[in-house]
Design a protein around this nucleic acid. Structure first.
Lengths: 340, 340
DNA sequence: AGTGTGGTTGTAACTAGTTTCAGAAGTCAA
DNA sequence: TTGACTTCTGAAACTAGTTACAACCACACT
C-alpha cells in the first residue's frame, strides 16, 4: 500500500549499518546529539541524509507512551464562535508542542460518540468537548480510557468533568437586565433550536428565572435567512414588541438586517441585543449591543489546563470565564414609555 | 508521566495471560474475531473487559505503517471561508476513516514551515495546503518525506503539486467584467494585504490583465473596521469612484456597512461587488453581488483526492473548481452614464 | 489403519524505535 | 604504573502490537 512512493522507508538499523555504528548510537544522535562523539555523530548524520531517513512517529510514541495529540469536539465550524474557539485552542496547544485533531459533531449525539471513539482510538492524550450534556455511552467510553477531558462553553463547578466556560444563564440574564433596565417589557426571545444545545437551554432557563411572565420564545436556525423569517414571525405575532433578545449574535445580526429591509428603525422602533459579541457585531449599523463571550480566552484557558493536566496528572479546577455586556447602538430606552 | 491515571496500561500479553491464551489469539480477537473459536473469544473478551484493555494505537500504526491522519494548513480560521473549507475537509475525511489535524499559519512562511514539520513528525499520511507559493525549505521538506500533498484555493495545472481550486484571476475578472458591463469605469479595488497571499496576488494580476488603465488599489485587513477605514480613504481620494471591487466578501460587507453609515446609497450612488460569496452576503442590505467560490465543494474534492492518493499511490490530476458570479442588489448600471 | 483436510492455536519473529547495562577506551592523579 | 574516573559505545532487552509458520486436533475418506 505505502510502497508506491519509495521502495521501503529506511529505519534506524539501515542508518546504523551505513554509518557503521550501532542502532543505539543512531537513536542517541536522534535525541540528545551531544552525548555522541562528533565524528560518529557526523557519520550518522550523513547516513541519515543519504538515506533521507525520517524516524517513525509511531515507533517513538510506542516508547514514550505519548502521542502529543489532543482532540476537540465542536458542533460545527460554520459558526464564527466555534471557529475562533478552535483557533485559540490550536494556538495555545502549539506552544505546548501538542497538535489538535478537530472533529465536528453537527449537534448530534451519535456523531459525537463516533468521533470520540475515533479520537480515542487514535490515542489522543486529552479531549475538549463543548457543553456538558451528552449520551450515557459517552461517559462510559471516557471512564474506560481514563484520559483528561475538559468541558467548555459551560461553567458548572459541580459537574463530573472540569468545566471551563461562562455561566450561560448569567450571560442571558445580563442581556435581559439591560433591556429591563431600559424599560422594555415586551421582549421577544430569539433562540437557536433549543434541543440542540445545553448552552441554549441554560440561557433560556436563566431568562425564565428572571422573567415575571412566560417568555415569548421564537426559534431560528443559525443563519441570517432563518433569523429573518423568525423576525417577520415575531412582528406579526407580537405587534407590541419593543425589544429582541437574541441568544446568539448571528440571529441578532440577521434580525437587524431584516428589520432594516422592512424599514423598522433600530433602536428607535425596536431594541436588539445579542449574545456572543462577534467581532463583526461592532461594525453593524447600528453597532450591536451584545453580551461578550470571550471564546478566545476560553479556548486558550481550556487548552492550557488540558496540557497541564496531561503533563502533571492533576485534575484542574473549573474556571469561570466572565461574560460582560457591551452596550452599543442597537438598544435604547423603551420609546413607548417616553411617549406616555 | 502517564501513570497518574492507572498504574500501568495493560497490554495484549496481560490479556493473554488472564484469558489463558496466546497473544496471537488476543490479537485475532481484536481484529477478525470470527476466526477464533467462540469459547476462547469469550474468555479473551471478558479479560479485555476485566482489565479495561485498550489497544495502543501507536503499536498498531507501527505494524500497519498507517496513522490515518491527514494535516491541513490554513492561514487562519477566523475567516469564514477557511472555516467552511476545513469543515468540508473534516466531513469528507471522516467518510474515509481519516482524521484531520488542523494547523494555522497566520499567513506566515516560518510558521507554515514549523507546523508542516510538526505534522510530518506526527506522521500524517497526506497534507492539504492553501495556495502554491511557499518557502524553498517547504519544498525540500516535502521531497524528503514524499507524502501526498495537494494545494488548494488555487488552480494551476502546471504546478509541481496537484492543485484543486479556482482560477483566482478568472474570478476577479468576472467581477470586473460584471462592473464594466454595467458601464463602470472608475472602479476602486479593495484588497486584503497583497504580500500575504498568492491568491490575492493572482486576483490582482487578473485585474491588471483586463484593465486598460492602472488599477486603483486600496489595502485593508480582513475585518469590518479596517474595511471601513479603507472605504473612507477611497471616497476621499477618488471622489468620482462609482464602484468598489472587493477581493473578499468580508471587505465588501465592511464597506457596505460603512457606506450605509455615511449615507452613501448602494447601489444607487455606488456599486459593490465581492469575491467569496459568504453565506451571510445574500442577507445584507442590499444583498451583496459576489463571485461565488465553492469552498465547501473544493474542500470535499481535495479531501477525496488526497484520500485516494494515499490509498492508491496515484497522483491525482488537478481539478478546477468553477467560480460563478451571483448578481444581487449591490450592483447596478453606472448612474453617471445614465445622467449624461 | 492411513491419509487428507480444515479449523484453531501457540511460538517466535517481525514492525521501529528507546533504554539499560556492561564494558572499552581515554584522562588524570597518586 | 596503577587505580579512579569520565566518556563513549554496542548488545540486548525493552515498548505493544501483528503475523508467518508449524503444529495440533478432529473428522472424513480411502
Amino acid at each position: 500500500m505505502r510502497e508506491f512512493f519509495n521502495r521501503k522507508r529506511h529505519n534506524v538499523r539501515d542508518v546504523a549499518k551505513l554509518a557503521g555504528v550501532s542502532v543505539a548510537t543512531v537513536s542517541r544522535v536522534l535525541n540528545n546529539a551531544d552525548i555522541v562523539s562528533k565524528d560518529k555523530r557526523a557519520r550518522v548524520e550523513s547516513a541519515i541524509e543519504a538515506l533521507q531517513f525520517v524516524p517513525s512517529s509511531s515507533a517513538r510514541a510506542i516508547n514514550s507512551g505519548r502521542t502529543r495529540l489532543v482532540g476537540a469536539l465542536v458542533p460545527t465550524l460554520d459558526h464564527a464562535i466555534f471557529a475562533r474557539y478552535i483557533s485559540a485552542i490550536e494556538a495555545e496547544l502549539d506552544t505546548q508542542s501538542l497538535s489538535l485533531i478537530v472533529a465536528t459533531t453537527g449537534y448530534d449525539d451519535d456523531q459525537e460518540l463516533d468521533k470520540t471513539q475515533r479520537l480515542l482510538n487514535i490515542g489522543v492524550e486529552g479531549l475538549l468537548v463543548s457543553g456538558i450534556a451528552r449520551a450515557d455511552n459517552f461517559t462510559k467510553l471516557l471512564s474506560r480510557y481514563q484520559i483528561p477531558v475538559i468541558a467548555t462553553s459551560y461553567y458548572d463547578a459541580q459537574h463530573a468533568l472540569p468545566t471551563i466556560g461562562y455561566d450561560n444563564a448569567k450571560a442571558a440574564q445580563s442581556a435581559w437586565d439591560h433591556l429591563a433596565g431600559l424599560g422594555h417589557k415586551n421582549i421577544a426571545i430569539l433562540t437557536s433550536p433549543v434541543n440542540e444545545s445545553d448552552r441554549t437551554r441554560a440561557r433560556l432557563k436563566g431568562l425564565e428565572a428572571v422573567s415575571t411572565e412566560p417568555l415569548r420564545v421564537f426559534e431560528a436556525h443559525f443563519d441570517y435567512a432563518s433569523a429573518a423569517t423568525a423576525t417577520c414571525e415575531i412582528l406579526e405575532k407580537l405587534p407590541d414588541v419593543t425589544a429582541f433578545l437574541c441568544l446568539s449574535d448571528v440571529l441578532a445580526q440577521g434580525a437587524l438586517l431584516q428589520l432594516g429591509k422592512m424599514g423598522v428603525k433600530v433602536p428607535q422602533d425596536l431594541s436588539i441585543i445579542g449574545i456572543d459579541d462577534l467581532p463583526s457585531s461592532a461594525s453593524f449599523d447600528p453597532p450591536l449591543t451584545s453580551v461578550h463571550l470571550p471564546v478566545g480566552q476560553m479556548g486558550q484557558a481550556a487548552a492550557r489546563a488540558l496540557a497541564l493536566w496531561i503533563e502533571t496528572g492533576q485534575t484542574p479546577s473549573p474556571i469561570e470565564i466572565n461574560s460582560r455586556i457591551c452596550v452599543r447602538g442597537s438598544t435604547r430606552p423603551n420609546g413607548r414609555i417616553i411617549r406616555e
